[in-house]
Amino acid sequence: MRVADDPKALARILIAPALIYIGAVIGVPFVLSLWFAVSDVTVSSAAGNYVGLENFRSAMGDPSFRRALRNTFLFAVASQVIVVILATTLAVALQKDFRGKWIVRLLILLPWVAPVSLGSIGWLWILDSIYSVINYGLYHWLHLCGPEPGMTACPVWLGQPSLAMASIIGVQVWRTLPLATVINLGGLSSIPQDIHDAANIDGAGFFRTMFQITIPLVLPILLVAVLFGFVFAFTDMIVVWVLTRGGPYDMTQVLASLAFFKGIDGGDLAGASAIALFLFPVLAAAAILLLRLARRAEVI
C-alpha cells in the first residue's frame, strides 16, 4: 500500500523490467564485447588475456579493414542521402489526397514489414549473374545489352566493384526508405494547416514553402529518421552478407560483415570485436549530436 502511494517508488518498480531487459539484452553483450576487444579470446575460448589496444592496432594495419572502413562510410552516407531525399519527396506526395493512396502506402511499407533476409534474397535473384530479371529485360525487351556478337555485355550487378556497391546501396535504400517515409509523414502531419494557409495567402510557391516552412519544421523528426538510418547502415551486415559477402575482392566489405567473417568464421573473436566496436565512439557522438540538433530545432 505504501509503495502504491509513493509515485517515485512506483515509477522505479514500473520501469525496472524495462531496465533489466535492456541491461540483459544490450548492456551485458556490450560490456562483454568491450572486454573481448581488449583481450585475445577466440571463438573457442571466452577466457582470454588482456592485450590492451593490440586488436585495434592490428585492425588498422590490415588493408581489408581500411577498405571496409571506407566502404562503411560510403555505404552509410550514400544510402542515407538518397533515403532523406526520397523519403521527404514520398512523404510530401503521400500527404496529398489521391485515388489508391492506401495501396501506395501499403506498397511503400512492405519492404519494412518483410524480413530483411528474405527481401535481400529476392534482390540476390534479381541481380543474379545468370538469371537477373533486370538483365533479361535489358536484353529481351530493350535490346540494350546481350550475349550476341556486337552487343554490349550486360552488367554484372554483383561482380563489378562499382555496380556491386551501387547494388548494396540501392537495396539498403529500398529497405530503410519505408521507416524514414513514415517518420517524415508523421512530422508533416504535425505541422498546423494554418501555417501552410498563411504561406499560401502570402504567395509562397511550392519550393519556397518546402524549403522555408516544411523542411525546417519537420527537421527535428527528419533527424531522428537520419539517425536511425545511419545506425542501421553502420551496424547491419545482412544486405552485404546476402548479396556480395564483401566481394568482389573486399570492395563491398563493411565493418559489420568483416567482423562476422573474422570472428564467427575465422575464429578470432577478439579481433572481430575490435572491428565491430571501432565505430562505436563515432556513432555515439553522432547520435548525441543529432539528438541535440533535433531538440534545438524543435525549440526554435
Binding site: S129, I130, V156, G159, Q160, A164, T244, R245, P248
Partner: peptide, 20 residues
Amino acid sequence: TPEVLSWDASSNNRAMLAGK
C-alpha cells in the same frame, strides 16, 4: 567474365547446367 566475381557456392552449378 566478371560473373565469377559475384558467385556463391552454387553459382557454378547453375552456370554449368544453364549452359553458361
